[in-house]
C-alpha cells in the first residue's frame, strides 16, 4: 500500500485510476475522505491547522497499512494525510482500499481510519470565533481503535 503525507490537495478519481490501472481482478474499491467541518459543538471553525511529525507520520501510516494487509486479503491501497493550514470543506485524509470482495475492503478502510486517529502523529488546532485551541483526543476514538484486537 502507498502512503503519502503532503500539504497539497488530492484527487480521489486520480488516485483510484493510478491504483487500478488496467487491472481486471479487483472486485471492490472502498474510499474514505475526511473533511474539515465548519463546526465543533457550539463553535464556528474558521480554519484548521494540522501539525505532524515528519518521518514518523509516514512510518506509522505504513505500519497501520501493513497491519491491515496482514488481516484482510487486499489488492492494494493508498492512504494520504494532509498537513498545514486547511479551510472548512477542504479534504484532510484519504483512504482507498482495493479487494476482490467488499467485506474486506470496508473493514480494512474502517480499521485504517480508527488506528490512524490514535496512532499516527498528527495534531489538529482549530481557529474559532472564540480563539484558537488544540483539539483534544476523544475517549470514543481510543475505544474504537482498541476494539480492533491484535
Amino acid at each position: 500500500m502507498k502512503v503519502r503525507v503532503q500539504q497539497q490537495n488530492f484527487n480521489i478519481a486520480a488516485e483510484i485510476k493510478e491504483l487500478c490501472g488496467n487491472r481486471t481482478d479487483i472486485g471492490a474499491i472502498v474510499t474514505f475522505t475526511g473533511l474539515v467541518r465548519d463546526f465543533h459543538g457550539e463553535n464556528k471553525i474558521q480554519k484548521m491547522t494540522l501539525e505532524h511529525f515528519p518521518g514518523m507520520a509516514e512510518k506509522q501510516l505504513g505500519n497501520i497499512c501493513q497491519a491491515a494487509d496482514k488481516r484482510w486479503p487486499l489488492q492494494g491501497g493508498t492512504v494520504i494525510h494532509r498537513y498545514g493550514s486547511l479551510l472548512p470543506g477542504e479534504q484532510i485524509v484519504l483512504v482507498v482500499i482495493l479487494s476482490a470482495h467488499r467485506e474486506a475492503a470496508f473493514e480494512a478502510a474502517a480499521f485504517i481510519m480508527d488506528r490512524l486517529k490514535t496512532d499516527a502523529p498528527f495534531w489538529k488546532k482549530e481557529q474559532t470565533s472564540h480563539g484558537a485551541h488544540w483539539v483534544e483526543a476523544k475517549d470514543a476514538d481510543i475505544k474504537k481503535s482498541q476494539n480492533w484486537k491484535e
Binding site: 505532524h52 511529525f53 512510518k59 486517529k117 496512532d119 499516527a120 502523529p121 483539539v135 483526543a137
Partner: peptide
C-alpha cells in the same frame, strides 16, 4: 513519547544518542 520514532512508555531507558519526541495524544484523521 516516541524514542527514535517508536512509541514508548515512561519507563523506557534512554541513551545519549536517542531522539526523544514529546507530544499530546494524537488527533489526526
Amino acid at each position: 513519547v516516541a524514542v527514535n520514532q517508536a512509541y514508548v512508555k515512561f519507563d523506557h531507558p534512554l541513551e545519549d544518542k536517542d531522539e526523544v519526541a514529546f507530544f499530546p495524544p494524537m488527533t489526526g484523521g
